[in-house]
Design a protein around this nucleic acid. Structure first.
Length: 399
DNA sequence: CAATTACCTCTGTA
DNA sequence: ATACAGAGGTAAT
């Protein structure tokens, strides 16, 4: 039980810009809990709390005991984590113009955007993801935190732990096997050992975020780790290293390439996912969708997941909501009370909030001005520009 | 070098 | 009940 009242703050946010109940259950991140419409996860030394209604995203944070910060930067953390400075509705519009097949699914699956995760957690999570399902991946990630992470805080009776760094997981293979990791236990131990052997590696990993590092370079960098193949490398490039154009080719992508998009390799229907076919399919979608192709891919991926709940929600008031899909994302009766603590925090947050609000409202305003079905509208122009840019990128990638 | 195959565990399904 | 396939693949052969 929560001892004290939650100090919610809020930002105005259209569910079509972000639908947390989908984004946090579509196989990007695996640690979010959801109880009675409130989402929680440890992130940057605190437990972040979120809920959403038709007009607002509500956020709060619980810090470790005696570690309340001078300035609560949770809004910045949330903005960064959800990549909120990228206007998603403009992208949906663009993808719908470039790809009629996308448009159909997008109508139902709005608000699905790419997270900007922590690279280390992203790497380890997706080493766990190989030949696995979302439910067990979630269980494994929780297990890592509970057994090797640091306790941050308790919320709704659940202890939240930080995601353990590589130094915490040295020589862990046999323990991880007992925890049910199977053959992935060895991959994790070996990868952690590499980080221990070369102390510069951790910084190198985070440096892959730089715009100066191409997606190809980041991809190659990631392949050095045991348990990381092309698909996992691409997931990390896309989900935490800012390589937004990368489309990881998994079984789902392979299926809709051949089934829905008439994709052919050297004139024939591809049957197995060889290295060449992998690169070719990735190129196919990157060329189709442009410089945020990986984001578009995640929309189709989410639409293709049979059950977006993945059986991991503890208790949900919105069961089947995803399938029925209305324009609202969460239907629970959320009280819109906003409790504040100190004068300073109020000012601090209002300032930060104001900046974000202005940004968001500016974006929304831009969106309003775009015609419903533009033929020479901004979206299309941008789409072409992106496409061109992308194909020039791509040449380097194929080499 | 390309193409198969083994690999842990858990869950849904017949 | 008791198998058995399949899950956001990768390493080994």
């Amino acid at each position: 039980m929560q001892a004290s009242k939650i100090a919610w703050k809020s930002v105005r946010l259209d569910p079509r810009e972000l639908a947390i109940s989908k984004v946090l259950r579509c196989g990007q991140a695996f640690r979010w809990k959801q109880i009675d419409g409130i989402w929680s996860c440890s992130l940057r030394e605190r437990v972040v709390l979120l809920k959403q209604d038709d007009d607002f995203l509500y956020y709060s944070a619980i810090f470790p005991a005696n570690k309340n910060p001078e300035i609560d930067d949770t809004l910045e953390v949330v903005t960064d984590y959800f990549n909120l400075n990228v206007n998603l509705q403009n992208l949906y519009r663009l993808w719908s113009e470039l790809d009629p097949a996308f448009e159909k699914k997008a109508r139902v699956f709005g608000g699905i955007r790419m997270l900007r995760q922590d690279p280390w957690e992203n790497l380890v999570s997706f080493i766990c993801s190989t030949n696995n399902n979302v439910k067990r991946i979630s269980k494994m990630c929780d297990s890592l935190c509970e057994n090797y992470g640091e306790r941050i805080a308790t919320f709704q009776g659940i202890d939240h732990y930080s995601f353990p760094g590589p130094e915490k997981l040295l020589d862990s293979e046999s323990d991880l096997r007992e925890l049910g990791f199977g053959y992935r236990a060895k991959y994790i131990e070996k990868t952690c050992q590499m980080f221990a052997d070369d102390p510069t590696l951790r910084d190198q990993l985070y440096d892959q975020r730089s715009p100066k590092v191409s997606s190809l370079e980041a991809h190659e960098f990631l392949l050095q780790f045991t348990g990381v193949g092309p698909k996992v490398a691409d997931c990390v490039c896309l989900m935490s290293l800012d390589k937004h154009e990368v489309v990881p080719v998994d079984t789902h992508v392979f299926t809709f390439a051949t089934r829905d998009y008439g994709y052919r390799f050297k004139g024939k229907k591809a049957v197995t996912l060889s290295k060449d076919v992998y690169i070719d399919i990735r190129h196919f979608f990157e060329t189709l969708w442009g410089d945020h192709a990986g984001w578009a891919h995640s929309v189709l991926f989410a639409a293709d997941l049979s059950d977006l709940e993945n059986g991991v929600n503890i208790k949900s008031e919105v069961t089947d909501e995803v399938k029925r899909e209305t324009k609202s994302d969460i239907k629970s009766d959320i009280k819109r009370e906003i409790v504040v603590k100190t004068e300073d925090q109020v000012l601090e947050d209002k300032l930060a909030q104001r900046v974000k609000l202005e940004k968001l409202e500016e974006d929304l305003e831009n969106l309003e001005t775009i015609p419903k079905t533009p033929k020479t509208g901004r979206g299309l122009k941008r789409g072409r520009a992106l496409k061109n840019k992308q194909s020039s990128n791509k040449k380097a990638l194929v080499v």
